[in-house]
Design a protein around this nucleic acid. Structure first.
Lengths: 153, 153
DNA sequence: ACTCTTAGTTTACGTTTGTAAACGTTCGTT
DNA sequence: AACGAACGTTTACAAACGTAAACTAAGAGT
C-alpha cells in the first residue's frame, strides 16, 4: 500500500531506530535486549515499535529463516536533518543563531567536526545579514520585544 | 497545586508561545487573531491551548478587567534550549557535529550571530576529542557502523 | 509426532494531542 | 432591567502514543 516513507517517528520509535542505526542490521532479539536494558521496555513493547516502524517504511525487513533482520531504510543523518528542520520550524528565526550557539557549547566534538563547522561558518560570513527578521507573527512585526532593540522589518 | 512549570509543550502549544513571546504581553483576542490567520485555527482551538499553557505554568495571566493579559513565564531562549536538550538526547553523540553543521548551513544568521558562534567554536577547539563515542547502545559499541571507520570505544 | 520456544501479528487500553463546540459569566449597551 | 458581545472554562471526541498482554505460526529438541 504505502510506498512512501513516513518520517513521523515518535520519541520511542526513535530509540529503536538508534539501535538499528548503530547495529546496521539486527534481529528483533538483539534490539529487544538492548532496549530492555536501556529503556527498561518489555519485549512486547519493543515488538510493537518494530512493527510500527516497518509500517512507516522506516525499517526494512529481510527474511532470515522464520525471522527478520531489520535494517534502517533512512539514514540517521537524513532523519535527524529532517527532524531538525521541523524543530527549527518552531523557532523564531531570530533565535536560531543563539540556539546553535547553545548546542555548540555543550556538544562533544571531534577535531574533524570542528574543522567542518569552521568551514561552514566561514562560508556563512559572506551571506550574513544585519538583522534576522522575526517570523513568529505573520504580517506584523513585534521584533522590538525580542532583543530589546529596534527592528527594521 | 502545581507550582512547577511543565516544559512539556506540544507543537501546537509552541505556536501559541511564539506569538506571546513576540508580543511580550497579549490579550487572547490578539493571540486568537494571529493564529486564526497563521494556523487557520478556530478561536476555540486557540482558547484551548491558552488554557493548557496556563495550566502548565508556561503562561502567566494578569487580570485586566474581566479578561487576562497573557505573558510567557519562560523565555524563548530558555525554552528552546530545553527542547534542544531533549532533541539531542535522541541523537547519537557521533552525529552531533554533522547535525550542527547541517543546521548552520541553512540558517540565516546575523553578523553578531556569526561572531558569537566563532567565539564558541574557538573555545571548543581546546576540548576537541579525537573520536566522539557512540551512545546509542549501552554497554557495547557498534560505532564502526556509523562513519564506516574504526572505533575506539 | 509432540511439545517448547521464539518471533511476528493482533488486540487492548489509558493518556496525550489536535481540534472545536457548548456553557457560564460579566460588561457594555439599549 | 434586558440583551448581546466577549472571554474564560467545561466538555467532547477522534487520532496518535506508550505500554504491553494475548495469539499464532513455525522451527528445535526429545
Amino acid at each position: 500500500m504505502s510506498a512512501e516513507t513516513d518520517f513521523n517517528v515518535t520519541d520511542s520509535e526513535w530509540e529503536v531506530m538508534r539501535v538499528v542505526w548503530a547495529h546496521g542490521q539486527a534481529s528483533s532479539k538483539e534490539i529487544i535486549d538492548v532496549l530492555g536494558q536501556k529503556m527498561d521496555w518489555k519485549p512486547a513493547t519493543t515488538k510493537t515499535f518494530l512493527g510500527r516502524l516497518v509500517n512507516k517504511g522506516m525499517l526494512n525487513t529481510q527474511a532470515d529463516g522464520r525471522r527478520y533482520l531489520y535494517s534502517a531504510n533512512v539514514g540517521e543523518s537524513e532523519f535527524v536533518r529532517h527532524a531538525l528542520d521541523e524543530f527549527f520550524g518552531h523557532v523564531c528565526n531570530r533565535e536560531v543563531g543563539k540556539t546553535i550557539g547553545s548546542v555548540l557549547s555543550k556538544a562533544t566534538l571531534s577535531h574533524k567536526d570542528i574543522s567542518l563547522l569552521q568551514t561552514i561558518l566561514d562560508e556563512k560570513k559572506e551571506t550574513a545579514v544585519e538583522e534576522v527578521p522575526c517570523n513568529c507573527v505573520p504580517g506584523q512585526c513585534h521584533c522590538n520585544v525580542h532583543s530589546g532593540g529596534s527592528c527594521s522589518c
